[in-house]
Design a protein around this nucleic acid. Structure first.
Lengths: 132, 132
DNA sequence: ATAACTGTATTATATTAAATAATACGGTTG
DNA sequence: CAACCGTATTATTTAATATAATACAGTTAT
């Protein structure tokens, strides 16, 4: 379910955090759905339970999941809060990249075309559910 | 000249690489200009010469600078090649961010407005030399 | 209540990348 | 030749990541 690269230069817990964020945002993991227990997931991934715990705690700190001691970890139902946070992050990153781009002389239109290319890539690869 | 954060979680040599790339791209460091020697810069920044050397070698590998053993390290005159590479990188990064944004439902117009905000930030903070 | 799950916490250890340190060799310059 | 340069090598230190072994407490079902 959560396949990650153990030989990567990127820390395992970071990979797991990213993976789960993605799955939560993309609704692969539904709100209030129970996540695999720390110990079980550690066994499945053949990594240490503490590493899972570290990832879960960070995800909780950021509002993606919540935990009930003795019961388990669950996907947060604050989808909107997460979404807003994500949008804010994306805005910051895009803003930063654009500033850098403008700084070295790239024109606004050039960026627009990149944005449109990105849109086509998305629209081509997957359909919008809102009017299907 | 190269002020960097020694207490950062980011490796010093990476910070130095980024800093110098920026200065080279923005023409603060002119083509064929001699860079401070490995030993001198290390003394100035109170860090180890090997760390400078590591940064310089990476910058050379990427074509930003060239070195003449016994003489010194110099800014590459392949500005265009560097620029093209930088543009390509930016395009990739922007594309990636946009795809992620679209994926969670952000509209194209929303991104356009971010781009325009970035442009205003740049145009406001510094003037364009091309018609001054 | 007790066994078998859960999350949480703590401490110690191992592993790895980043950074330091100490040298050495050879080219360049004056 | 002295004083710079870049380069290379090896050993060591440091800090983050990951592992390991436990322990404690809440939950659930029997």
């Amino acid at each position: 379910m959560f396949d990650l690269d153990l030989r990567s230069r990127k820390p395992i817990y970071e990979q797991l955090i990213e993976k789960m964020k993605e799955m939560i945002i993309h609704d692969v993991l539904k709100p209030n759905e129970q996540l695999p227990s720390v110990r079980l997931l550690a066994k499945q991934l053949t990594i240490n339970p503490n590493t899972i715990q570290k990832a879960y705690r960070e995800l909780e700190r950021e509002g993606y999941i919540y935990s009930i001691p003795g019961k388990g970890n669950f996907v947060a139902n604050k989808k909107e809060a997460i979404y807003d946070e994500k949008v804010k992050q994306l805005e910051e990153n895009i803003l930063k990249l654009c500033q850098e781009a403008f700084y070295i002389g790239i024109k606004k239109e050039q960026i627009f075309s990149i944005v449109e290319r990105a849109e086509r890539a998305i629209r081509g690869g997957e359909e919008d559910d809102s009017n299907s």
